[in-house]
Design a protein around this nucleic acid. Sequence first.
DNA 1: GTTGAGTAGTTCAGATTTGAAATACCCGTG
DNA 2: CACGGGTATTTCAAATCTGAACTACTCAAC
Lengths: 155, 155
Amino acid sequence: MTTTAERSLASNVTKAEAWRAYFETTALLTTQLEKLMKAESGLDFGDFNLLLVLSETPGQRLRLGELAKAVAFGPGRLTYRIDQLVRRGLVERRPCPEDRRGFEAVLTPEGHRALRRARPLHARHVNDLLLDHLTDEQAQMLLEVFGPLRSRLTS
Amino acid sequence: MTTTAERSLASNVTKAEAWRAYFETTALLTTQLEKLMKAESGLDFGDFNLLLVLSETPGQRLRLGELAKAVAFGPGRLTYRIDQLVRRGLVERRPCPEDRRGFEAVLTPEGHRALRRARPLHARHVNDLLLDHLTDEQAQMLLEVFGPLRSRLTS
DNA sequence: GTTGAGTAGTTCAGATTTGAAATACCCGTG
DNA sequence: CACGGGTATTTCAAATCTGAACTACTCAAC
């Protein structure tokens, strides 16, 4: 027979294993993806995600704070990264009219081109490493797990 | 009617969304976990994982290279981190008898204690942030997705 | 045993990240 | 309009990470 306590214990064991698998594998996955991306396009993961977020926003512009939240960067890190992108001409830093404390990052045409070049590489690697190995149900489940989690963590 | 092409397109869209949710949420999650861990125990994520891996190994010792693989650290990074841990007395670096090029990291009693202290904190946060929100089926699925992926990436 | 290709770890310089101030501005209240 | 607490971003030093040499050793072939 299986008691409630035993069932809940078994569940916790599975959950612990799930955490380990998820956590350790994610480290491997992002490491490898990062390496591939940096080697093949000139954009590392951080660059790519910043440009991606910008590209999806109306006017391809975003307040620095919003951008920071979107990619989970602290303020110092964001300033540094944006400086880098500005120096490379992929992004413009422009003072914000409504709030003189603020700035917005604007995707430049170069930035757009760089993103366009990098995107298929990125997609290919993500497919190769992860998505092609997922059933539709698994993908659905990932969405159901991480979507709500994102809201919870963001709020 | 739904053609094969349309179905596969829909599937790819879901998969792309799943990737975004997974990837972005993981960044948020690890950031917050890192912050909580560092604040409450003296161990950050890297320390914790190194000690954890060591603690699970027979004799609580492991060749540096193995350890590096286990936590997905490059060689320079591992040397740096192990130095840190040695300095704090949590790990001992000991020459390897069978191979004079090599060293093994050994968990010290202090290291064991530090891990013992940190573990419940870690578990609590992981539960709060993620595991408590998962159904058993979802946990099972995470295991089924990331377990094989780990093997694939490790090999 | 000498040579030479390969492996384990370290070192070092440069790049990036962190965390804690510092600066400039916003906004509500008196 | 002056005050003061809050927000947006930058700055700076210290910590950490990366990648490319470099050192010391192994192992197999000659």
